[in-house]
Simulated scan of single mutants.
Amino acid sequence: MTDPTIGRLRVNGATLHYEVRGKGPLLLLIPGGAGGAAAFDGVADDLAAAYTVATYDPRGMSRSTLDGPEAEQRVAEHADDALRLLDLLSPEEPARVFGMSSGAIAALGLLTARPERVERVVAHEPPLVEVLPDAAEHRALPERVREVFRTQGLMPAMAEFAAGLAKGGEAAVPKAAMELPPQAAARAERTMANLPYFVERIVPSFMLYAADLHRLEALVDRLVLAGGQDSHGELPYRSAAFLAQRLGTEFLHFPGGHTGLTTHPAEFGTALRKAFGD
Results as ranks from 00 to 15, higher is better:
T2E: 08
T5P: 00
T5Q: 08
R10Q: 15
V11S: 07
L16T: 08
H17Y: 12
E19S: 00
L26Y: 03
L27G: 04
I30Q: 13
A37T: 02
D41H: 12
G42Y: 10
G42F: 07
L47R: 11
A50F: 09
A54S: 07
Y56T: 00
R59D: 06
L66Q: 04
D67H: 04
R74W: 06
V75H: 09
E77I: 11
D80Y: 11
D87Q: 15
L88D: 03
P91V: 06
E93M: 13
P94D: 12
A95E: 08
A95I: 06
R96T: 13
M100W: 11
S102Y: 08
A106I: 13
L111N: 05
L111M: 10
R114T: 14
P115L: 12
P126A: 04
P127L: 05
E130I: 00
D134F: 02
A135S: 13
A135F: 09
A135M: 06
A136S: 12
V145A: 01
F149K: 05
T151V: 13
T151Y: 00
G153H: 08
L154T: 01
A159P: 00
E160Q: 14
A162C: 07
A162T: 04
A163Q: 00
L165P: 03
V173R: 08
K175E: 15
Q183Y: 01
Q183E: 10
A188H: 00
L195K: 01
Y197K: 11
R201L: 03
I202Q: 10
V203W: 02
V203L: 08
F206M: 11
M207N: 02
L208D: 04
Y209C: 06
A210Q: 15
L216T: 11
L225E: 13
G228H: 04
Q229T: 06
H232G: 14
R238N: 05
A241S: 12
L243D: 01
A244R: 12
A244S: 15
R246F: 00
T259A: 14
H264T: 14
H264L: 02
E267D: 14
F276I: 14
D278G: 12
